[in-house]
Amino acid sequence: MSDFTFTIDGVEVPANKGQTILEAADAAGIYIPRLCWARDLAPGGHCRVCTVLVNGRPQSACTHPAGPKMVVEHDTPEIRAWRKNVVEMLFVEGNHYCMFCEKSGNCELQAMGYRLGITTPKYPYMFPQRAVDATHPDVMVDHNRCIACGRCVRASRDLDGKNVFQFVQRGHHVRVAVNAEGGLGRTNLSAADKAAQLCPVGAILVKRVGYAVPVGRRLYDVKPIGSDIEAKRAATPSGK
């Protein structure tokens, strides 16, 4: 039994004490778009793609606890536009060449672009100078594709207990760095680490496994991102 209920776009959603809005929505089969959130990781609240209105105030659904009688707005034209803007900004402030990226088809940023219907960002492309770190024998970091979601930072710290990755600098200069001079190859990262697995984009890639799945059978080729969560709602008879 749930501790209390609240509403998302007028739909009554059960929740337990301590659950975030996003967790409760997931359980109810309502997909709130998100990029920096990953199962098993403490929520970061970095990307703001999961922004919802909680009793009229913008909050990130991944960090905000659900509360009794809370009124959450999620799928409104205004909020959809915010999310689209955020994702468009991620595209222009990095160098995202989907046509040759080995993450293409399995990339959450790309899938989010598809889901939100972004044909091209409205902002000018920045074409920043970013480095590629291929010093590690089994894992590479391509900063061109990094969206600073911090999954690797949290995974390395909390799941792997290694602190290989860390944010450096601030504001829009923020980037992910490794805790060794001389690059990733000088750290104790292993390809089996969660930090090497959880990157939503093609910024951290395990070497020699790319392009294994043919086009048409990749994760987001056939179904939009989030459809696994939405399928839960369709499966429950009360879900309408």
Partner: peptide, 18 residues
């Protein structure tokens, strides 16, 4: 209509922008 990635974001030729 801008058709394709080169038209919409510069595409492979835009790699020289770096």
């Amino acid at each position: 209509i801008s058709l394709g990635d080169c038209a919409t974001m510069g595409g492979l030729p835009a790699m020289r922008n770096h």
